[in-house]
């Protein structure tokens, strides 16, 4: 087993996920099975292989620096329960960890 419960739980918390005991047990089993599957990569010599990032030689298109105001900014604000006046209001940031 590559990762124990404690390590998987740490990773989950890093992703802002709090798991139940049952979920954690499932996640531990899942992640270890998955990492075992990925062990296959070790059979390959990847030293001189370039990482793949895009399907072919594609260049990033560039957009002109012209302002186009989004017409429905209010519709964006309307979707949040945290809007207070013109702002988004969230609970305090610094918390004892």
């Amino acid at each position: 087993m590559k990762l124990d419960e404690h390590e998987v739980n740490e990773i989950a918390l890093e992703s802002r996920l709090v798991l139940t005991e049952q979920e954690l047990a499932g996640a531990v089993r899942y992640i270890n099975n998955f990492l075992d599957m990925l062990d296959r990569f070790k059979e390959l010599d990847l030293k001189d292989v370039e990482p793949f990032s895009f399907a072919e030689a594609l260049e990033c298109p560039l957009r002109p620096d012209t302002v186009i105001s989004f017409p429905a900014t209010q519709a964006i604000l309307d979707e949040s329960e945290h809007v207070d006046g013109p702002y988004f209001k969230v609970p305090r940031i610094v918390e004892a960890e």
């Binding site: 702002y87 988004f88 969230v90 305090r92 940031i93």
Partner: peptide
């Protein structure tokens, strides 16, 4: 300051 603040307001 951040410390002690009860709420924070975000301007995107």
């Amino acid at each position: 300051r951040l410390e002690g603040a009860a709420t924070s307001y975000v301007d995107y």
